[in-house]
């Protein structure tokens, strides 16, 4: 059931069966209801998530403004990457489901272990994560430019 779902995902289509099996072993399906908090900024890590359907907001708490959404994610997007990066000890943003959402969670610690044990699989995983982080960096830079402040008349 879970394996079937995973197999349809473009992420996994290219994986060798052995590698695929290893990831299935550490995966669990999770669902969140609308508005449910998934984790908070500063929480300890446990899972990396791949959204199957729904929408998740990444949030930062700003004093006097409350939780500000800085990015929303949908189908096939990954979040919770900080859990797999040993250098970062805690969640860098909060996450909340803005719609009923289904995701697949991968145990972060075990993800690191299987990457260490099998560098081919590890390369695959970390290349995916690097792309995710690069995307976040790029999005954040554009947000920093505050481009609408110099908008046209």
């Amino acid at each position: 059931m879970l394996a079937d779902k995973l197999r349809q995902n473009p992420w996994f289509k290219v994986l060798k069966p052995a590698h695929f099996q290893k990831l299935v072993e550490i995966a669990t399906e999770v669902t969140w209801s609308e508005g449910q908090t998934i984790f908070r900024e500063g929480d300890q890590h446990d899972y990396l998530y791949l959204i199957v359907e729904g929408r998740v907001a990444l949030e930062k708490y700003v004093p006097n403004q409350g939780q500000i959404t800085i990015l929303t994610l949908g189908e096939n997007d990954l979040f919770g990457w900080s859990g797999v990066m040993p250098v970062i000890g805690t969640r860098t943003t909060g996450a909340r489901a803005v719609q009923p959402t289904v995701a697949i969670g991968f145990d972060s610690r075990r993800l690191r272990e299987i990457s260490e044990a099998d560098h081919d699989l590890g390369y695959f995983i970390f290349r995916r994560l690097t792309n995710v982080i690069a995307g976040r960096l790029s999005a954040t830079r554009l947000q920093l430019l505050n481009m609408y402040s110099q908008s046209t008349e």
Binding site: T72, A139, Q143, M147
Partner: peptide, 9 residues
């Protein structure tokens, strides 16, 4: 409840 993220993303 909609998307948050810059247009190019």
């Amino acid at each position: 409840r909609g998307n948050v993220g810059v247009v190019p993303m």
